[in-house]
Amino acid sequence: MATKLSTIGDGALWFWAKIRRQDLVDLCRQSAGEVLLTCMVPRDRAMLSHFGDWHSVLNESPLAPEIPGESDEELEARLNRMFDDFEDRLRAAGARDLGRPHWPEDLRAEVEQGWESILEPGNYGRFGSWQATKHELRADDVVGAVRLER
């Protein structure tokens, strides 16, 4: 965030930047009593990332970008092969239960190489929920609020 945003700060607030309506409705149904804010934020104050691919970073997993024309079944099979192969190589190196800083350099580099791509909307595939991360939320960023009820 420090290199991507025009703002500074220690905080990191998370927002939906793009989500299918039905997915948002489903999430809201699970959040009775919460308040849903609608915000308008200048692009230079929000770092976009692909929601699903962000979990590759959180899980210290390799990132597998989609291949144009690939079916859901082909994508799933390729992901399973890739993750199994990566896990096998981690185990063979004796590093499976170690944190990423202690992995062999080639495995660490393989995982880290994809991280920048999750910050570029042009790389997002068909599973397009985007998240935004900001240092702060200003009152004038909020354009609507609604209490969620069942």
Rank of each mutant, 00 (worst) to 15 (best):
Q30K: 09
P68C: 05
R20T: 09
D106H: 13
T38Q: 12
R78I: 07
R89T: 05
V25T: 09
L58K: 08
R43E: 06
L58M: 11
L37S: 03
F51G: 04
D85A: 12
E149Y: 07
D26R: 14
A92L: 09
L119Q: 08
L148S: 07
H50E: 09
E110L: 15
G52I: 15
A95D: 02
F15M: 06
F86Y: 15
R89H: 08
V111H: 03
E60W: 02
H135R: 07
F83Q: 10
F86W: 12
L5K: 11
N123W: 02
W130D: 10
L36V: 07
H50T: 08
F83R: 12
A2D: 03
E136G: 04
V25G: 02
W16A: 09
R91H: 04
R150M: 05
N80Q: 11
R20Y: 13
W103E: 05
G122Y: 08
G33Q: 08
Q131T: 04
T3G: 07
V57H: 11
C39N: 01
L5R: 13
E34Y: 15
N59I: 01
D88Q: 15
E149D: 13
L13K: 04
S6R: 15
A64M: 14
S56F: 10
P121G: 12
N123V: 05
S49Q: 13
Y124Q: 02
C28V: 02
G144E: 00
N59P: 02
V25C: 00
E34T: 14
P101A: 12
H50P: 05
K18W: 10
D84Q: 15
H55L: 15
G144Q: 01
M40G: 11
I118W: 02
L63Y: 11
A93Y: 04
R150N: 11
E70I: 10
P42S: 07
R29A: 06
S56M: 10
D88S: 15
M47V: 04
A46I: 15
C28Y: 09
A46V: 15
A95P: 03
L24Q: 12
P68M: 06
V143H: 03
K4S: 02
R78E: 00
R138W: 00
Q22L: 09
H135Q: 08
H102L: 05
N80H: 10
V41E: 05
E112I: 13
D140T: 06
L37N: 02
G52V: 15
R29D: 12
G94R: 01
N123Q: 05
E116A: 10
T133L: 01
L119W: 04
W130R: 01
R81D: 07
T7Q: 13
A17K: 01
R20H: 15
